[in-house]
Amino acid sequence: MKAIKIENLTKRYRDVVAVDNLSLCIEEGELFSLLGVNGAGKTTTIKMLSCLTEPTEGDAYLLGKSIRKNVSEVKKLISVSPQETAVAPGLSVFENLELMCGVYGFVKDKREAKIKEITELLNLEKVLNKKAKKLSGGWQRRLSIAMALISEPKILFLDEPTLGLDVIARSDLWEIINSLKGRVTIILTTHYLEEAEALSDRVAIMKSGRLLVCDSVENIKKMTNESRFEQAFVRIIKGDAK
């Protein structure tokens, strides 16, 4: 079964078409990046797939569940780490993780085990009792991803996970994301092309809501006769790729 099967997904806001007839499939365990310049429709696509926004037309199936007809079942399969850091500022790191366990209905034993596991995976031990608002940007982002992972999602949406982070914090997060590859299907949006190149199995490049290309980074470079992915991306966006 495909992790995600998108069929003619469209989102219109009055006269603006944010996502235009998008169709693609993502395999289970794949790390798939959505790329594009501002206004390409990446975040709208993630919002539709995570049931935050209803599509105008089309549908998508997450592990066979429709985002239109099986919303509550889809919500049990997914987790989202939004573009901005989404943590409860007045709660400690531990309490933030506990909050997410609670909203997914984990019983006490499972809750404790999951918090321990995620704390170790993301090296959060030393900040566990610190209030989220007292953490640096990098640690808040790490906590945000921990909160997304703790619910054991089958599909994880990471919307610009490293935006605004310094080089070290970004490299740490890349390591964490890499360690999840194969275990969780990850949909990543990013403006950093080197990030997409380093992490993704496949990428989709979007412009003005339309899908321009969907392939591995290597194939896209070959397709455009470019040695650097950034150049290949620019050619595709500017529409002068062969």
């Binding site: 935050l52 919500k75 780490s81 939004p82 850091t85 409860a88 209905g105 619910s151």
Partner: peptide, 11 residues
């Protein structure tokens, strides 16, 4: 903040 957006994607 994005906290509510995150929570809207939960059950």
């Amino acid at each position: 903040s994005s906290l509510l957006q995150r929570l809207y994607t939960t059950p």
